[in-house]
Each structure stands twice: as C-alpha cells, then as structure tokens.
Design a protein around this nucleic acid. Structure first.
Lengths: 160, 160
DNA sequence: GTCGCTGCAAAGTCTTTGCAGAGAG
DNA sequence: CTCTCTGCAAAGACTTTGCAGCGAC
C-alpha cells in the first residue's frame, strides 16, 4: 500500500519540507515545537488523506509520550493550510481531510466491484484543466479526479 | 452563466422532476407534503449550489406562511440524496452544498478561499478519461473531478 | 525572562433525533 | 382513521476558543 521510497531521497525531501516549515514559523514570529514537527512528519509519512481525528490518533499511537491534544492538531492544520503547506479536501463523507501540498500529483481510478485502485497522470487532462481554470478566471492550485469503473480482473470474473 | 430556459420548457422539465419525486415517494410509502414540494422547487429554481441553511432561508423568504423548520430541510435533502435526485458537494468550505442531480453532467471548480463553485464541461477531458480507463483495462462507469484554485474576486481582494 | 504554545474543558457550529400534535392518503 | 411528517427543542458530532501553566528562543 505505502509506496516505498528510497530512504536517502525521502530524508532529503522531508528535510526540505521541514526547513520550509521552520522558515515559515520564523517569518511569522511563531515557535517550532515538537508537536508541530510531529504533525508535519505524520502528514509526510502517511500515504492517506488524514482527518484531524485520524491524524490525532496516529500521533497518539506513535508518540504517546507527547499526549498531544486534538486542539493542537486542529490549530496546526489551520496554520499549515493558511500557509498553503497542506490542502484540505472534503469528499462526500463528513469532516475534512488534509494532505501535504508538496507530494507528487496523481489521480485515481477505482474499481467499483473489488475496490482496486490504480493511479494515473495524464498530461493532456492536466493542461486542459489549466486552460479551463484560466478561462474561468481562477488561479489553479490543484485538482482531484476520480474515475469509477470495473477493472479487468472483475470483468473476466463476470463473464464466467 | 445560468442558461436561460424558455418558460414552457422549464415548466415541462420541472413537472417531470416533480412527478419523478411523487413517484419516488409513492414507491416508498412516503407522503407528498407542501414542504417537500417547496424544497424541490427551490432547488430547481435556484442556479446556485445551496447549503441547507441558505435553502431554508430562501424558503422562509418565499413561503413565510409555511414556517418550514430547518430540520425538515435536512430531512428532505437526505431523502433526495439517498434517491439520487440531488447530489451533495462538500468542498473545502464548511457545510455541504446540494444541487439537483437531474441536471447535465458537469465538473466543478472550487475557490479554496471563499468556497465559490463554478461548473464546467470539457469534451476533451471527458474523452481522455474514457481512453485512460480503456488503457488501464477498466470499463468506465462514472467520474468526478474537482479543480481547486482561487477565484477572480478573491485574487482581487488579496492584492489589496 | 518573555511571549507564544499546549492540554483541557467549555463554548460554538452544524446536523440529527425524539416527541407530540398536524396532515396526507 | 392510520401512519407519516413537521416544528421545536434537546442531543450529537465536529471545531474553535479561553485559560493557566509550560517551553522555545
């Protein structure tokens, strides 16, 4: 499930993120605390889109000693969102989900029979999106796209 | 933005919607009430994506005699959503927004600052999606796509 | 040391639910 | 008449905020 990334590369990427965060805090006269670092780290290491609650849960699990409060999670997420370091998304279900803005972009195609998920990126779609946003006067930040269908293996099963 | 529709045609379209709704209610042993009719009517006649609160407000305004409760609005929207007559959208901004599902397929572009939503359809994207699904061996059923960005008015505000 | 940060709990929002009377079928 | 609906208010779920002690700088 979680894509394996080369350790060195991952560290470099994370360190960049971390120093951006520190810079952001410094620029605004804010303090770099262990809680804030852990929240960033969890956002980085998780491949999922996290809700404030799931993020809090993750932190409680991995760093029980910190006894981080949910309020701090909310406050930090707002801070990160205001600074465009994370983006909040809310698909249908209740409650927002958050993800780091720095990750590689990709879309998903989901099988409605077995739940298998494939990822894809299509340059043509990406460029059309930019054009559409432009035409509508928007400055595009990102997008999210899901295609739902039936995957090959499920199609085969259904024929039997 | 809002396509002008000829009055007669509009009435025909609305009547179709209304009879579908009545049928739905009948099929499930539910009752056709004035409140339910007014909610459907407001959803139909509004070009906006409505929140439960704004919908309630609209109804209070146009039909003050009914004194419709917000709970009824929530209950009716859930009913309509469960029956796929309306679709709920929940992007960034707080609170869900609802739109009639009977309308033509379209995607959404959402302002991450103020929550404004515009709609669009792009044939090229639609056809690319079909192609991608095909390449990945999927039989496409449907899709959902959202672009997030900053709308014109918010860009202007930010410059000040 | 100073001043922002944190956890806790209380206060806000938004949404759902229980109830008794009203109303559709 | 019966059984669902409705408005109201109370209860829930999710977020934000006030406060006093803690900790980064």
């Amino acid at each position: 499930m979680s894509a394996h990334t080369d350790f060195t590369e991952r560290t470099v990427e994370y360190n960049k993120l971390l120093s951006d965060f520190k810079q952001l805090l410094r620029d605004n006269g804010l303090k770099f605390t262990i809680q804030r670092e852990v929240i960033l780290e969890m956002l980085y290491s998780s491949d999922e889109h996290l809700t404030p609650e799931s993020l809090h849960h993750l932190i409680q699990e991995k760093h029980p000693d910190l006894n981080t409060g949910i309020a701090t999670v909310y406050r930090t997420l707002s801070l990160l969102e205001d600074s465009d370091m994370v983006t909040s998304l809310s698909f249908g279900a209740q409650g927002k989900k958050y993800e780091l803005g720095a990750k590689d972009h990709h879309d998903h195609i989901i099988c409605t029979k077995c739940g298998a998920i494939s990822e894809f990126v299509d340059d043509e779609i990406e460029s059309r999106q930019k054009k559409i946003a432009e035409e509508l006067g928007f400055i595009i930040q990102e997008h999210s796209m899901q295609i739902y269908g039936i995957c090959q293996p499920c199609q085969t099963k259904m024929k039997k």
